[in-house]
């Protein structure tokens, strides 16, 4: 009789603890949002939103906080990285799911797993070692542009390499999930392999691929360290993709030293974090929604 009671007590305690832990996790989300909003209230209440976003004057000592250069820089860097990463990522995913033999598939997938696990500062170090000298020494002169190598273009390439594993593995997963009958039916009509991929498979997997790109976009958008190391840290609107700039996350890191002393600057930087959090959350939710629709469509 006592043994049974002990079992039931264990059962009860475990159920309660797990419920609390699970609610705690959802609580984190709300806690982060609430804290960041509360702390950035100081800057939102003193400046109009339009002033903050469209003014290009960032000078904390004179109390002017314009995010415009950093916003433009972020958009540039993210666009460059996505233009490079999206086609390469999708084509590589096609190779993995359609062309590769199963041994090569495992081999390449483990390569991509390793790439996904490399810390972002290491990407930064490698970019400083290899990419920056290359851009300033060869690519710049070849195109007739004077550049230090610490520029938007370099940051874009670094981010592209960083988001490739996400895009490749999620797109390959979406392609693999398509029923094999689709391929057989197309090939039996006499199409070439590429025509099958182009006309049928890419269309079928398009929600999955699109959500992979959105997730990669979110990652590129919020990446801090690697970008802060190679972008040059100039708080100006970049005149071309070969000039230095600043992104929203790298602005936080580079202003961190002064951050403690001026409360309103602290608030402005926390406001940046809030923006990052909201925008990335939006993209992640969109990606999740699109992916759910894909699953419904193919009854997965």
């Amino acid at each position: 009789m006592r043994r049974i009671e002990l079992r039931l007590i264990k059962e009860n305690i475990s159920a309660k603890t797990m419920l609390i832990l699970a609610l705690l996790i959802s609580g984190f989300f709300i806690a982060i949002f609430a804290t960041l909003t509360l702390k950035s209230y100081l800057v939102i209440s003193n400046y109009s939103l339009k002033e903050l976003i469209f003014s290009s004057n960032w000078d904390p000592e004179r109390y002017s906080f314009g995010f415009f250069p950093a916003i433009v820089g972020t958009i540039y860097v993210t666009l460059v990285s996505m233009i490079i990463a999206a086609p390469i990522g999708i084509l590589s995913a096609i190779y993995i799911s359609e062309y590769a033999t199963s041994r090569r598939k495992t081999f390449i997938s483990s390569f991509i797993d390793i790439l996904a696990g490399i810390p972002s500062v290491v990407f930064g170090v490698c970019a400083l070692l290899v990419l920056v000298p290359f851009v300033s020494g060869y690519l710049g002169p070849a195109l007739g542009i004077e550049t230090t190598g610490m520029c938007v273009f370099t940051a874009g390439i670094v981010l592209a390499v960083m988001v490739l594993p996400i895009i490749i593995s999620l797109s390959a997963e979406a392609l693999n999930a398509l029923p094999i009958e689709l391929r057989d039916a197309c090939l039996s009509l006499g199409t070439t392999k590429w025509e099958t991929i182009k006309g049928v498979l890419l269309k079928g997997a398009s929600p999955g691929i699109f959500s992979a790109i959105l997730l990669g976009f979110g990652r590129a958008f919020g990446e801090t360290m690697a970008v802060a190391m190679v972008i040059g840290g100039k708080n100006q609107i970049p005149s071309s993709i070969f000039s230095g700039g600043q992104t929203l996350p790298s602005l936080i890191v580079s202003s961190f030293g002064e951050m403690m002393s001026i409360p309103i600057e602290q608030s402005a930087l926390i406001f940046i974090a809030l923006q990052l959090f909201l925008i990335v959350t939006f993209f992640n939710l969109l990606a999740k929604y699109i992916n759910t629709r894909l699953r419904k469509r193919w009854y997965l």
Partner: peptide, 26 residues
């Protein structure tokens, strides 16, 4: 609901966590 919040937290840039913790510290 919990899975969705986990997915959002997974995607959140790590600098946001850093700033969040910093605000708590302050």
């Amino acid at each position: 609901f919990i899975r969705t919040s986990l997915d959002i937290l997974w995607g959140t840039p790590s600098i946001v966590y850093g700033i969040f913790m910093l605000t708590v510290l302050i």
